[in-house]
Design a binder for these strands. Structure first.
Lengths: 157, 157
DNA sequence: TCCAAAATGTGTATAATTACAACAGTTGTA
DNA sequence: TACAACTGTTGTAATTATACACATTTTGGA
């Protein structure tokens, strides 16, 4: 390994270590949601929150499960009041899945708690530091590009 | 909303975006591991990887399950060859849990893939930007304090 | 020494997640 | 129009995660 790639590797290690605090905020934001829905269930809520009403089969594919599994999985979420089945305007054989107000609220609360957690940390910094964080992390997010939604789905985020 | 809180909100939004990118890297790094162990099982591997050989009851508490549940949970992980029970040198009633080589390899592979993912993002940035990202995350980590490991465990990381 | 406490494991039970196979409407097209 | 393809749901079944109550072994102190 040459000097440049060694330096790169060190930078990656340091960045990884420093990112733990940020991941901690993310994890905390989900704790209360995971007391009322399971992680796979929360994943469905995230998908629907991002994509809006979506066909059963399409969500099943996103989740990586076969339709029959998904149908009864959704039965439980409907029973819990998190999503509802609606009929598609396109075709009577299609069933659309939609967040209920409770489901939307749950996702929104997680997002809001995450924002608050980040703000709480930022507020302990000077304005100058905040500006630096803003620009640096903006650059990081840009360099990463939008992570494919399917990847985030692995952890249900 | 005043100027200061607007700046706060902008920094928070940028941080949120970065956290999503970071989670994308984390999620991708875990995909292949989650094909051979479940998420709760991977969490145990992470605990043992960080703490070394640990008493059954202590790990159960970290995982937030009662010991009787944990005993059979570990039966499955032993059967899978990911961990092994060893007797404690301190007391014959204590059972220590330890990673097998396979278990350690699984965790190491995830860590390595995560490192590569971060590296891939950083390599799309200038050296100066890379330094800025590192410093920004370091400042964030300092302001946040050490995230309780229990929080990270929520996501299995 | 003897017994309460500690640490773990078993018996029993429930809910969640998952798949495969078969079935029932619905749609579009040959 | 008739039939194949599409979309979703049931029947059946295995595995996993989880808890409560109880049993077993070991330890440490009265």
């Amino acid at each position: 390994m040459d000097a440049a790639s060694t330096a790169d590797a060190r930078a990656a290690d340091a960045t990884l270590a420093a990112s733990r605090a940020l991941l901690g905020v993310v994890a905390r934001s989900m704790v209360s949601a995971l007391e009322v829905v399971t992680l796979p269930q929360f994943r469905v809520l995230v998908v629907l929150s991002a994509a809006g009403p979506t066909r059963m089969g399409a969500v099943a594919e996103r989740m990586g499960v076969i339709p029959s599994t998904f149908s009864r999985f959704i039965d439980r979420m409907v029973a819990g009041g998190w999503v509802e089945r609606t009929s598609s305007p396109d075709s009577r054989r299609e069933v659309l899945l939609e967040l209920t107000p409770s489901g939307r609220r749950l996702v929104d609360e997680v997002t809001e708690r995450r924002r608050e957690g980040i703000l709480a940390v930022l507020s302990a910094m000077t304005d100058k530091q905040q500006g630096a964080v803003h620009h640096a992390l903006q650059a990081f997010a840009d360099a990463a590009g939008e992570p494919p939604a399917a990847d985030l789905l692995t952890l249900g985020i």
